[in-house]
Amino acid sequence: MTNIEIILTIISLIVLIVAGFYAVFKKDLIHAVVATSVISLVLSLMFYLLQAPDVALTEAAIGIALSTIIFIITIRNTKRFEDK
């Protein structure tokens, strides 16, 4: 890996950890779902850096767009907030 790739990798890993915490512990479910979408976006970048363009394309199409939209449709039809 070149230097720029290593720097991008480290930034991506930090964003992954932060977004993971946000997705699991946030009470507002819409925010949590957007955090999972961010996880997918950064994961797609990670796959590209790890020389797996096929997997990156799949994750970009399915993880970012389609998974997020089915979560949001479900939340619209149920409750938005996770109560104690």
Binding site: D54, A61, L66, I69
Partner: peptide, 29 residues
Amino acid sequence: YVFIHGHLTPGGGFQGGAIIATGFLLMLI
């Protein structure tokens, strides 16, 4: 394009199908 060129470039049937579904999703919403 993505699923026709699946054997030459990154991509394939699953990715192409998901992209087409994204287009229909845009129209549906």
